[in-house]
Simulated assay, not measured.
Amino acid sequence: MAGNFEMSDIGLLTYYLGIEVLQHKDGIILSQERYAKKILCETGMDECNAVQSPMEFGLKISKANEEEGTDEKDYQQSIGCLHAIPITHSTRYRLLCRLVKQLLKYRALARSFVQVEIRSGTPTSFWFDEWSPLGRIIDLTEMQGCIALGINLNATVEFVIQNYRSRRYRAEHLITIDKEILKLRAQGLTEEDDVVKWKGKGNVFRPCFDIHQTWNSIRVPQSKVQWYKGLWFAGSTPKYSVMSWLAVHNRLATGDRLLLWNSQANAQCILCNSAVESRNHLFFSCTFTETIWRNLTRKLLGQNYSHIWSQVLDLISTHTVSGETRFLLRYAFQVSVHSIWLERNGRRHGKVQRHPSILIKFIDKQIRNRISSLRGRAGTSFNNAMVVWFSSRD
């Protein structure tokens, strides 16, 4: 990751989003004690006595007409802080259970990707690890095999090779297992560690794990879409790429999609208030967003300029423009999609509305910052990007 992104090592994680992270050799402990004490101090309750319920049982509350007004935002902020407290307790437990259940679904699939090459046989389970061409021995014999072969369920390969006594079996699968044990005994064990091998490209097992080859082995291959180059390119920022990817797949909760879930939902575009909000309207047919897009890309595209979604997608995916201009166009597209969507969400949730000129300045700053971080990298062609970008600005 350090080769693709600017990173710095600041040591072990100790505090993140209100959660203390205590790392020991026996595990990791998550705590929100410091966060809870901070809330108590800010609300003036740090010296109060601890009780099971913060309110007297059966207390009736009425409106105080003669009291001075209070700022409701302070109350809302305090209550909002309390919502984050259970994250390391019941919520953490539920998330952990969900994660474990999801992982357990892939047990059968994962077994076919792992093999063990026996050297010493010490850490390898005779019954549950796939150390022979026969596969997992427990799958061949089931639990009755322990009695039939006289081998304990917890036995390792090393223990079996050293202590197994061959017998005459009638069942064909037991005869095959017996031969496999005697074959490995004849080869002999060494003092080296067993080698765990992972299945990769071409179903070949190798002593190293390759996530790319594993992913290609378990997924159903699909033909490449034309627009992928416009989203996943050198110098892109992951959060902007993911947001753009969601937009391309029309997965953003725009007004037209909200209507499919709730016919009473307000589907009007909150930026221009003149049309139903859809993906194609929001990017960039809306008068609000078209102003932003035009200001950022009009000079970059020249005669090829367009604000129609399908045409914009073609422009960033093909070689209509080249070099630094193509990178700037793609990056401007992604930052614009991300910033416009955040502005749209902010307005729907009552935040202060921003003028297009403010968003233009913000996007312009993000692009300049990205160019500055990329310039000077070995093997890249971003050295002239800042000159091209400045020449396209008014």
Rank of each mutant, 00 (worst) to 15 (best):
residue 259 L to C: 03
residue 336 S to W: 04
residue 58 G to N: 04
residue 334 Q to R: 03
residue 325 T to C: 15
residue 311 Q to D: 15
residue 119 R to H: 11
residue 369 N to F: 07
residue 313 L to G: 00
residue 345 N to W: 08
residue 231 L to S: 01
residue 309 W to Y: 06
residue 175 I to R: 13
residue 303 Q to K: 13
residue 355 H to Q: 11
residue 23 Q to G: 00
residue 36 A to R: 12
residue 250 N to H: 07
residue 64 A to R: 09
residue 393 R to G: 05
residue 230 G to N: 02
residue 104 L to M: 15
residue 165 R to Y: 00
residue 299 K to I: 13
residue 116 V to E: 06
residue 273 N to L: 09
residue 16 Y to S: 05
residue 72 E to L: 08
residue 351 K to S: 13
residue 61 I to Q: 09
residue 141 T to P: 00
residue 202 G to C: 01
residue 339 S to C: 14
residue 113 F to C: 07
residue 148 A to Q: 12
residue 336 S to T: 15
residue 350 G to D: 07
residue 363 I to N: 07
residue 269 C to M: 07
residue 315 L to F: 04
residue 33 E to C: 06
residue 335 V to G: 05
residue 99 L to F: 14
residue 127 W to C: 03
residue 348 R to T: 06
residue 378 A to K: 13
residue 365 K to L: 12
residue 243 M to A: 12
residue 321 V to P: 04
residue 293 W to V: 04
residue 100 V to C: 10
residue 80 G to V: 04
residue 33 E to F: 06
residue 63 K to Y: 11
residue 313 L to T: 03
residue 321 V to I: 15
residue 271 L to I: 07
residue 175 I to G: 00
residue 118 I to V: 08
residue 183 K to T: 07
residue 40 L to M: 14
residue 163 N to G: 00
residue 145 G to W: 00
residue 136 R to A: 03
residue 2 A to C: 08
residue 304 N to Y: 15
residue 243 M to G: 09
residue 260 L to T: 11
residue 317 S to M: 05
residue 191 E to K: 05
residue 343 E to D: 07
residue 79 I to C: 08
residue 346 G to A: 10
residue 273 N to A: 08
residue 261 W to H: 06
residue 328 L to S: 14
residue 337 V to I: 15
residue 352 V to S: 08
residue 315 L to Q: 09
residue 212 H to L: 06
residue 314 D to C: 12
residue 184 L to G: 00
residue 238 P to M: 05
residue 144 Q to N: 07
residue 257 R to W: 04
residue 122 T to P: 00
residue 280 N to I: 04
residue 367 I to Q: 03
residue 32 Q to D: 07
residue 93 Y to S: 11
residue 140 L to G: 00
residue 373 S to L: 11
residue 357 S to H: 13
residue 199 K to N: 02
residue 33 E to Y: 07
residue 394 D to W: 10
residue 123 P to W: 05
residue 180 E to Y: 00
residue 70 T to K: 09
residue 314 D to G: 13
residue 141 T to M: 02
residue 133 P to E: 04
residue 222 Q to G: 06
residue 302 G to A: 13
residue 320 T to C: 15
residue 26 D to E: 15
residue 261 W to Q: 06
residue 110 A to E: 14
residue 299 K to Y: 11
residue 378 A to L: 12
residue 37 K to G: 05
residue 86 P to E: 04
residue 377 R to D: 03
residue 153 L to Q: 12
residue 238 P to N: 06
residue 34 R to W: 04
residue 343 E to W: 03
residue 378 A to S: 12
residue 110 A to Q: 11
residue 81 C to R: 15
residue 29 I to H: 07
residue 334 Q to V: 04
residue 312 V to W: 02
residue 16 Y to N: 06
residue 150 G to N: 01
residue 20 E to W: 03
residue 303 Q to W: 09
residue 103 L to T: 13
residue 144 Q to C: 05
residue 147 I to M: 04
residue 274 S to M: 11
residue 245 W to K: 03
residue 188 G to R: 02
residue 171 A to W: 08
residue 212 H to A: 10
residue 328 L to Q: 14
residue 115 Q to M: 07
residue 33 E to S: 10
residue 133 P to H: 03
residue 84 A to N: 11
residue 296 L to P: 00
residue 58 G to W: 02
residue 200 G to D: 01
